[in-house]
């Protein structure tokens, strides 16, 4: 469950996001769409607790963080960060660790799972995405799509309440395949929340439960995916959807 209230973030007098309000129940997938440079990634980084913001608050499950707390690296922020996992556009796998190492690093050193238990879970996850044969390879030996799967599994292995994905379609081998979509669906259905930022409506269709459209630094509207696609309430949303249909 995510609640965002009055979230604003400015950098050197330029407003990146302004007064964002958002409510999302557990078990759902939200797609955040909109043109590039409208503050979608900024919103995601704030939700992950990785970017301090000036106004508002964010709540994930039983943890919340205020604007003041968002800039101070202390216990409260560290606890908040554990609530979500993030998959960056450029993935940023740990280059010095194998596929297995990337996935079990945090479970072993943060959650203090035994190595055996963490490895067992990692193998199960890898099997679901059919990349268990790459277990001992290093990230550079994998294709873009394979790297993306590992990045998703690395985040999921910590079992965060919220999974955040930034522009997943820009990976070299985008996740169109059913198994990744199934994995995300399954993850949401088991009581987690998934937020996917993308400029591609096509990718989100049939997977997202809700869609939110971001105009210039503000959240224009949010509705169920079906409703927003068929009958957007704002002219800017309509314009964006018309363009993305053409692409």
């Amino acid at each position: 469950m995510i609640t965002i209230k009055g979230l604003s973030k400015t950098v050197q007098n330029s407003t990146l996001i302004e007064n964002i309000n958002l409510d999302l129940e557990a078990g759902k997938i939200l797609g955040v769409i909109g043109p590039s440079g409208n503050g979608k990634t900024t919103l995601l980084l704030c939700m992950a607790g990785l970017l301090p913001f000036e106004k508002g608050s964010i709540t994930i499950g039983d943890r919340s963080i205020s604007a003041e707390e968002s800039g101070i690296s202390k216990e409260k922020l560290w606890a908040f960060r554990k609530k979500s996992g993030i998959v960056f556009q450029h993935l940023h796998l740990f280059p010095h660790l194998t596929v297995l190492g990337n996935i079990i690093e945090a479970p072993v050193h943060v959650k203090k799972s035994t190595k055996e238990a963490a490895e067992f879970e990692a193998r199960e996850l890898l099997k679901k995405l059919a990349i268990e044969q790459h277990l001992n390879k290093f990230p550079e030996e994998l294709s873009g799509g394979e790297q993306q799967r590992v990045a998703i599994l690395r985040a999921i292995a910590m079992n965060p309440e919220v999974l955040l994905l930034d522009e997943p379609t820009s990976a070299l081998d985008p996740i169109r395949s059913g198994d990744v979509r199934n994995l995300l669906r399954e993850f949401a259905d088991s009581g987690h929340t998934v937020v996917i930022v993308s400029h591609s409506v096509r990718f989100l269709r049939g997977m997202a439960d809700y869609l939110a459209f971001m105009g210039k630094s503000e959240l224009i509207e949010m509705d169920t995916a079906d409703k927003l696609m068929k009958n957007p309430g704002d002219a800017r949303t309509r314009e964006f959807l018309r363009h993305s249909e053409l692409n």
Partner: peptide
Amino acid sequence: PERQWQVAYSLGMRPTL
């Protein structure tokens, strides 16, 4: 890259770890 720190933080690691 700064992102390596951020990934580590989002996995629940503290700065020293």
